[in-house]
């Protein structure tokens, strides 16, 4: 565990200290939450980070990864730009479309509205986890089978919200699927086929076949 950078008063930030600070801080690797990280530090004074870059550890798809971020870096930007996980899409970047949906501790969230530092200690699951090791998740197979995409830009987000729906409800009704996917927008309007793909997955279909 590397020590976080010492507290610096705001006035002390210059271009030089910004550059100097750029490669320093690493946040505790095994801490369970940001709160637990904080709890290990000296009591009495809050921990401060930034405004320059520092290294944090994120657990993505079961693997701990070190990633360089600024305090203002969103989880979406950390995944796409630093970790080459470009499945989550940057579309509206304001939490209005759902293209950036990933799971944080099993719950689907907008990664564009989540600061990367707020995901420290959490279990992040991205759409890439559904095709790992050449094994394709039945949900993805059923998206293909049902032709549940047109331009495909919303698809990774739709898949992640669908996955959470299935994980949390088992055999969801059409109404429940619509409810759980209501934060994901498909401008092509392929909703019907997406709902079918989720229903087929709930019924145990593995894609292919009629």
């Amino acid at each position: 565990m590397t020590k976080p950078p010492p507290d610096q008063p705001q006035e002390a930030f210059s271009r030089r200290s910004f550059l100097k600070g750029a490669s320093v801080a690493t946040i505790a690797g095994t801490a369970a939450t940001a709160a637990a990280t904080a709890a290990t530090a000296t009591q009495g004074k809050p921990e401060t980070f930034g405004p320059g870059t520092h290294e944090i550890q994120l657990k993505v798809n079961g693997q701990n990864k070190l990633v360089k971020v600024e305090t203002r870096t969103t989880l979406l930007d950390a995944l796409r730009d630093q970790m080459d996980l470009t499945g989550a899409k940057k579309i509206c970047d304001r939490g209005a479309c759902g293209g950036c949906t990933v799971h944080l501790d099993g719950q689907p969230i907008n990664s564009c509205l989540t600061l990367a530092m707020d995901a420290i200690g959490g279990e992040i699951t991205t759409v890439e986890s559904l095709t790992e090791g050449g094994k394709v998740h039945p949900l993805v197979q059923n998206f293909v089978h049902c032709d549940a995409m047109q331009c495909g830009f919303c698809t990774p987000g739709m898949v992640m919200s669908s996955l959470a729906c299935l994980q949390q409800r088992g055999k969801p009704t059409r109404e429940q699927i619509q409810h759980d996917l209501s934060g994901n927008i498909c401008r092509c309007g392929t909703y019907g086929r997406i709902f079918e793909a989720v229903e087929r997955t709930a019924q145990g279909a593995q894609g292919g076949g009629k």
């Binding site: 009495g44 004074k45 809050p46 921990e47 930034g50 405004p51 320059g52």
Partner: peptide, 13 residues
């Protein structure tokens, strides 16, 4: 814009 991120341990902090 860049900002300093403060992680407090207590409400007082």
């Amino acid at each position: 814009k860049p900002f300093t991120y403060v992680l407090p341990h207590t409400l007082a902090e």
